[in-house]
């Protein structure tokens, strides 16, 4: 599952389910996620993601999904 090449994964955060605990933001090895003005997790540097899966496994609210990037996906979604 883990791929070490950057820019090949797409991260989706469901803001309705996120409670803003900050676990994903703190422990992301590439600092891909940050808390936004509403205190929810948001994707800021998606191209740096190495698909380690940490945020997905450690999200207590199942609010983050990391998938492989498909050709049609935009860069900053």
């Amino acid at each position: 599952m883990a791929k070490n090449s950057k820019g090949q994964s797409k991260i989706t955060v469901y803001p309705d389910w996120c409670k803003g605990c900050g676990v994903c933001v703190e422990f992301c090895p590439k600092k891909v996620l940050e808390l936004d003005v509403h205190g929810k997790s948001s994707v800021v540097r998606e191209d740096d993601c190495i698909h380690c899966g940490f945020c997905e496994l450690h999200c207590p609210d199942f609010a983050i999904v990391v998938t492989d990037k498909k050709p049609g996906d935009s860069n900053n979604s």
């Binding site: 605990c21 999200c59 207590p60 199942f62 983050i64 999904v65």
Partner: peptide, 27 residues
């Protein structure tokens, strides 16, 4: 990943769940 989890949840229940932010029970 989490898409597997979504398949096993009862979606007629209220989400996000009642547990506090950062509670390990969700994990």
């Amino acid at each position: 990943g989490n898409e597997i989890i979504h398949q096993y949840l009862r979606h007629n229940k209220k989400f996000p769940h009642v547990l506090c932010a950062g509670c390990g029970h969700g994990i």
